[in-house]
Nucleic acid binder design. Structure first.
Length: 929
RNA sequence: AGGCGCGUAGCUCAGCGGUUAGAGCACUUGCUUGACAUGCAAGGGGUCGGUGGUUCGAUUCCACUCGCGCCUACCA
């Protein structure tokens, strides 16, 4: 074995073997355990958030597989409609081509090409992460089977009246030319202006003032609204104003919606271009005028397809972009003397989450899912506990959204996606069915009738919502569906609770009658070391593979600065990257990365990724590697006690007891999804107990001349057995190194099996608690620590053997000093131990306390008297302060009367012990003079 | 506006109604100790954001407050 661990040397080889031998596929007849991967964008790459979640999913998967479950981690990708279409369109544009000129069919073919070309990236990344997904079941949302499920669901919902087509205001992206759902809109406050315009009353008796942030939409105003109780305007309600620029007459109406305190208290109402105005328009039966085209340029104006009522839009405005039109409209009003004032005003501006374009509420025909009937059962499923959120607080977020849920706009004016299964005849009547043939058959439409399929595709999330059952073969009643659905747990981030989690619950319940998963474990979001969200535009992204393999600075800079949406950010990103990683990133290996993710997975919702952490866990890998090296060096080719031999040596008994407790903790924490605590339990056991104490304790046993061969064989057995179990316990978190080491150790341990991943996960009961051994070893540790403390603080060379005297040793102490002598000698580097008889005087010594006993190190030639005096004085002061505290506590009647007796007793014992300590320290100090 | 989260050592984070609040990293000191310098040993460092309350006892529970952040909705 190498002296240090080199992950690159083993990772790929082991993964290939796992995959080739089919070990990821569900096997056996155990209880089913299933996790559905949140499908990443097929043409994307995995970022740190994916790597984090994959680590947790794989840990759960491997853990349950080792516990004998029939375990399926279902992989796959989604087609990411808008994102993918945008990428391919950009490629096209770069070649001087346009989507519109090559046509739909050719374009979709190009997208498929791109998918084939780039789709392998994610699979490669997942393999490097060690993901034990069943690749034979890999699925893609645009696969035939999954597409059939989409059609089936669409038709069924339509036939039940839960999908409808309607002309409504939608969030329109004038750049991508598609409708978006509410969730795809990002509204950030931006600095704008509030324009105050005078709208003359039709009878010439004056004017009223409206305030608006969007002057250009006044071309489509169909009313002015005031609050019904607003005394200033009450008399105007029912009268008419002449809309400037267009000259149309519009009524003054009263509506509760108006806030009299804002602006002038009069609101222009544009039902065609504002969601609130749309509602007001409906309440008051106002006409609806559309003044924008699909590019958000001023159109000639139409009234839901009808001719514009009296008064038109000036020709000079038609065709102007909305922002240019805004300036012209303001100028026109100013020229007409109707501009009262302009105020600066901050307002939320809706932008598309992909295009970043300012969206327009726009009147179009779209398909909607009527959501309330689906939401109600989905709410109940969480309320009654059929689905449990972890941490449970996220249920609140879920409920809040579900209770206010709006109908879901599912049609997108894109070419890449599931085409809507609806056909129109020449008269424009719509027919929905599983295929054109089915539609013709169902409606008796002969071949002479021309049918045209709806041009639109479905929201990508529509197909993602079916993922838990469509991947298992639904609508067919496949065996897998029967075994693995409902799935066990969904692991995902809180950012897609609405997009995905809620919709899966609704669709799952609707189409299978069962919840799609029993638990939802919501992870935090990985951020950079400053707590900033990682994003391409911030230039702070890390590729998980770069942490695994390492990356040089130039490559890293190139990665972070290429393909930027805003190229002007390049210099600052480059500078920051060079500052943060002057030497690039070293190789850490997959296991170190995975252990880091697990250790960071606490309940918080922001997780800062700190390179120092991963470095620490790389060292941990190396520690484990070297511990194994030590074990093998001491065991290989040597005689071992037969398996099942119960250990008798104290260290062997102790480490098994400690392992049992550590393993119990891991089981407990994993059941709670506390990967951080599970990781910590394993880390601390491995490093602080197995390596720091146990391996050191085996040295006198194995290397000392005074140990019987049989005893050595027994210790070798314990050494190997505990390591073997530890490797199994660590495997779900660190699959590669544990596999490599386990294969070396298993043979020696006499365990058969080709792989650790199919071995049983250690049970705590296999290593029962041995409290006597723990107490005994705690005494040894206390002894050793006492000596080390003296050594450390007195600057005594670590190698120098010390003679030690024991004073006030009880019977137990005397016995232990005898039986554990060889351990004390080795670990504390003792020359000799002598027990002082009662009344026997000791020379000047440095002192350590162990229970009632004093451990004395004679000072002659070793110890600085002043230093020891100072040390004792410090300890004494500390002990006295403590005594004061405890005394005060016990003297308090309230405490003595009210606190539980056990607590009071503990304080009394504490007082006794501290009193003893003080007298011992005081005596020792006095002796030093 | 409503909802939620966070604030503990220099940094990143655990923890918890009851001994002296922990870890990793960083820091100081000493070590080529026969697995490991990606290591070993010792050490320094915190009035647990603030105020008030409940309690025998609060870092922990409650209220208020300050600071930071997120989500949903949104007044033209």
């Amino acid at each position: 074995m190498d002296k240090t661990y080199h992950p690159a040397a083993i990772e790929r080889r082991l993964y290939e073997e796992w995959e080739q031998r089919g070990w990821f596929a569900p096997a056996g007849a155990g209880a089913p355990y299933c996790i559905m991967i949140p499908p990443p964008n097929v043409t994307g790459t995995l970022h740190m958030g994916h790597a984090f979640q994959h680590t947790l999913m794989d840990a759960l998967t491997r853990y349950h597989r080792m516990r004998g479950c029939r375990t399926l981690w279902q992989p796959g990708t989604d087609h990411a409609g808008i994102a993918t279409q945008m990428v391919v369109e950009r490629q096209l544009n770069a070649q001087g081509q346009q989507r519109s000129t090559i046509g739909r069919e050719a374009f979709v073919a190009r997208v498929w090409e791109w998918k084939e070309q780039s789709g392998g990236t994610i699979c490669r990344q997942m393999r490097r992460l060690g993901d034990s997904v069943d690749w034979s079941r890999d699925r893609f949302t645009m696969d035939e089977g999954l597409s059939a499920a989409v059609t089936e669901v669409f038709v069924a919902l339509y036939e039940e009246g839960l999908i409808y087509r309607g002309k409504r205001l939608v969030n329109w992206d004038p750049v991508l030319h598609t409708a978006l759902s509410d969730l795809e809109v990002i509204a950030e406050p931006e600095q704008g202006q509030l324009w105050h315009f005078r709208y003359p009353l039709a009878d010439g008796s004056g004017h009223l003032v409206v305030a608006t942030t969007r002057p250009e939409t006044m071309l489509g105003d169909t009313a002015v609204a005031v609050h019904p109780t607003d005394e200033r305007y009450r008399h105007l309600v029912g009268r008419q104003v002449r809309l400037p620029v267009t000259g149309r007459l519009v009524p003054v109406i009263a509506d509760e919606y108006v806030d009299p305190a804002f602006g002038s208290g009069c609101v222009k109402i544009t039902p065609g271009h504002d969601f609130n105005d749309y509602e007001i328009g409906r309440r008051h039966g106002l006409p609806l005028i559309n003044v924008l085209d699909r590019d958000a340029r001023i159109s000639a104006g139409d009234c839901a397809g009808e001719a514009l009522p009296a008064g038109g839009i000036p020709v000079e405005l038609v065709g102007l972009d909305r922002f240019a039109a805004r300036q012209r409209v303001v100028a026109l009003l100013e020229e007409a003397g109707l501009l009262e004032k302009i105020e600066p005003h901050s307002l939320p501006v809706p932008r598309g989450d992909r295009s970043n374009a300012v969206l327009e509420p726009w009147l179009t025909d779209q398909w909607y899912v009527k959501i309330a009937p689906l939401a109600a059962p989905a709410i109940r499923a969480v309320e009654d506990g059929r689905i449990r959120f972890v941490p449970e607080n996220w249920a609140k977020t879920y409920f809040q959204w579900m209770h206010n849920i709006q109908d879901w706009c599912i049609s997108r004016q894109l070419w890449w996606g599931h085409r809507i299964p609806a056909w129109y005849d020449a008269a424009g009547a719509v027919h929905v069915g599983r295929s054109e043939a089915a539609v013709r058959a169902a409606h008796g439409l002969g071949p002479d009738v021309v049918l045209r399929q709806d041009e639109d595709v479905l929201d990508t999330w529509f197909s993602s919502a079916l993922w838990p059952f469509s991947t298992l073969g639904w609508p067919h009643k496949t065996p897998e569906l029967g075994v693995f659905y409902p799935t066990s747990v969904l692991v995902t981030g809180f950012d897609i609770i609405f997009f995905w989690v809620a919709r899966m619950i609704m669709m799952g319940l609707k189409f299978t009658g069962e919840v799609p998963f029993r638990e939802v474990y919501i992870t935090g979001l990985i951020r950079d070391e400053h707590g900033e969200k990682m994003s391409k535009s911030k230039g702070n992204i890390l590729d998980p593979l770069d942490l695994i393999d390492g990356v040089d600075l130039e490559t890293l800079v190139a990665k972070r600065t290429s393909g930027l949406m805003q190229p002007q950010l390049r210099p600052q990103i480059e500078k920051a990257t060079r500052r943060q990683f002057p030497d690039g990133i070293p190789e850490f290996g997959t296991d170190a990365l995975r252990f880091t993710f697990a250790a960071l997975a606490s309940t918080g919702r922001d997780i800062r990724f700190d390179l120092n952490r991963i470095e620490g866990y790389r060292n941990f890998c190396n520690k484990l590697w070297n511990a194994t090296r030590y074990v093998l060096m001491n065991v290989e080719g040597q005689e071992l006690a037969p398996a099942g031999t119960l250990p008798t040596a104290l260290p062997d008994r102790w480490i098994r007891s400690r392992l049992g407790k550590a393993v119990a903790g891991v089981h407990e924490q994993l059941a709670l999804y506390r990967f951080d605590l599970a990781a910590r339990a394993l880390y601390e056991f491995t490093w602080n107990e197995y390596c720091d104490w146990y391996l050191e304790l085996t040295k006198p046993l194995l290397q000392g001349a005074d140990t019987a061969p049989q005893a050595r064989a027994a210790t070798r057995r314990a050494l190997v057995e505990v390591l073997e179990a530890l490797l199994r316990a660590l495997h779900p978190l660190m699959p590669f190194i544990t596999e490599e080491l386990w294969r070396k150790v298993a043979g020696v341990a006499g365990t058969s099996g080709d792989t650790v991943m199919l071995q049983p996960y250690p049970a705590a009961e296999a290593f029962p608690a041995d409290e006597a051994a723990e107490a005994e070893l705690a005494w040894v540790q206390g002894f050793v620590l006492g000596i080390r403390q003296i050594r450390g603080e007195m600057n005594i060379a670590p190698g120098r053997p010390l003679p030690v005297l024991l004073q006030d040793a009880g019977a137990g102490d005397r016995h232990r000093a005898g039986t554990q002598l060889h351990f004390l000698r080795q670990l504390a580097r003792l020359e000799s131990i002598r027990v002082l008889e009662a009344g026997e005087d000791a020379p000047a010594c440095a002192t350590a306390l162990l229970g009632g006993m004093k451990i004395l190190v004679p000072m002659a030639g070793l110890i600085d008297l002043d230093a020891e005096r100072e040390r004792l004085t410090r300890a004494l002061a500390k002990a006295e302060a403590e005594r004061t505290r405890v005394e005060a506590k016990l003297a308090n009647r309230q405490f003595a009367d009210n606190a539980p007796p056990a607590v009071v007793a503990r304080e009394q014992e504490r007082l006794r012990a501290i009193g003893q300590e003080i007298s011992q320290l005081g005596g020792q100090l006095a002796r030093l003079g």
